[in-house]
Design a protein around this nucleic acid. Structure first.
Lengths: 235, 235
DNA sequence: CATAAATGAGAGCGCCGCTCTTGCGGTCAT
DNA sequence: ATGACCGCAAGAGCGGCGCTCTCATTTATG
């Protein structure tokens, strides 16, 4: 139904269709930001666009499909935010911290979107296929920082338990082909990624309410610790 | 409305009320396990108990309140599972790993309950007051392991960035009064706790789908790494 | 025993996701 | 240019939801 990115519009009808698709998505996005995914209603979107609720189904065959489109959009936005936070000219440690701080800022400014990405999967399940690409965008950004640091000879893994063989998909070592990553390096990046996202989730979901006194400082602290764990030089 | 643990039943009416309250909770719990929190419906619970849906409101004034009761129940169950996984006579490392493995088993067997605890907060917000006690039960179990290890002189923190002052609530150092924990120790425990729960969340929510090949092994690996980080002796 | 409180059932309100039918208007081949 | 066709929007409607209100019945209490 929802054909993802729309190709070059031909007829006037297709042009109108594409435009309306975008408008629906935009209205849904506004609703998501306001009331969250669980309260997002197709009928309210239709009301905002002054059209019959049944007409929405010409563009998105179900509420879940609309949510999936919003998930993809959000993953991409988060990826863009991460990329913007990374200054490729800076030191590896600064790049790492800058990226994560940008991710946190995006999450704080878009908490419902963040919850949609990293919270409980709301529907039966979102479309797995269409989401894996955008989902990896932020991780790829982090992987580049480490790869660059390694190429510059600045990567040194501190002592820690070794990753048991077979725990992670070894194909991930070829995610950035020229990097020639080791299993250990990849395992640490996955852990670091999981760790910092986990801190953000806890902060946003209120699990740190009586735990952290300065959640921003604690986030920085965690990102720094995770960065040191993957071998980046951080003072 | 829902008066939490019910006091000693006096009249027959109160006895019946307490029993029905428990039955509603049990039916709701069954539904939660089957269809998850977002699809849990008061009306379906009433149907299963063969009573009018409006009658439920004599016991729980809203769906959110029912969910909150389920949250408390689940926190306690998780706490019990953690305590059962901890053999106080074993070595600190074994205690740590045993506790976490028990937590994971509980989460895998009760994924909807786990999602309710550590996923997106579904309603406007669950009751904060009544949940903080049960929520800390598992964390307390972990803190005891570390305290015991410290008392036995087996705790040694590996090098890592220091926790910046003011990041965490310093009162947490007095959570176990006789432990005399340092800020650094507490900060590491919080991070470790967050880290392992984060791995579980990612696993259960499908974020590790094309990432880990053996999620059990990866979980163990993470728990081990986190245990080493808090200073426990782990081989 | 009478009064007050607690309880349960039913009807009903306004939402929701989703489907089906109907009619209109643009598209396109003949 | 005309007629068949298809995309589209609208409306009605289905069953389900959370929640409220009323009313009868049952139970506890003075």
């Amino acid at each position: 139904m929802y054909t993802g990115r729309m190709s070059a519009p031909r007829t006037a009808r297709q042009r109108a269709r594409d435009e309306l698709t975008r408008e629906i998505l935009a209205a849904a996005r506004r609703q998501l930001a306001e009331v969250g995914a669980s309260a997002l209603s197709l009928r309210a979107v239709a009301r905002e666009l002054e059209m019959a609720s049944s007409a929405i189904y010409r563009y998105f065959s179900s509420r879940d499909e609309l949510l999936t489109a919003l998930i993809i959009e959000s993953y991409n936005e988060l990826g863009v935010a991460a990329e913007r936070g990374d200054d490729p000219g800076a030191e590896p440690g600064e790049r790492w911290m800058g990226t994560w701080r940008a991710v946190r800022r995006w999450a704080l400014d878009n908490r419902h979107e963040f919850a949609l990405l990293y919270g409980t999967p709301v529907p039966g399940y979102a479309a797995p296929e269409d989401t894996i690409g955008p989902a990896g965008r932020m991780a790829l950004c982090l992987a580049r920082i480490i790869t660059d640091a390694k190429a510059a000879g600045l990567l040194s893994l501190p002592d820690a338990p070794a990753c048991p063989p077979g725990a992670i998909e070894e194909e991930l070592t070829r995610l950035i082909p020229e990097a020639e990553s080791t299993v250990e390096e990849v395992a640490r990046l996955i852990q670091a990624w999981n760790r910092v996202i986990g801190v953000l989730s806890f902060e946003l979901h209120g699990h740190f309410n009586n735990v952290t006194a300065d959640s921003g400082a604690f986030f920085d602290y965690t990102a720094r610790t995770a960065g040191a764990y993957v071998g980046l030089p951080l003072d």
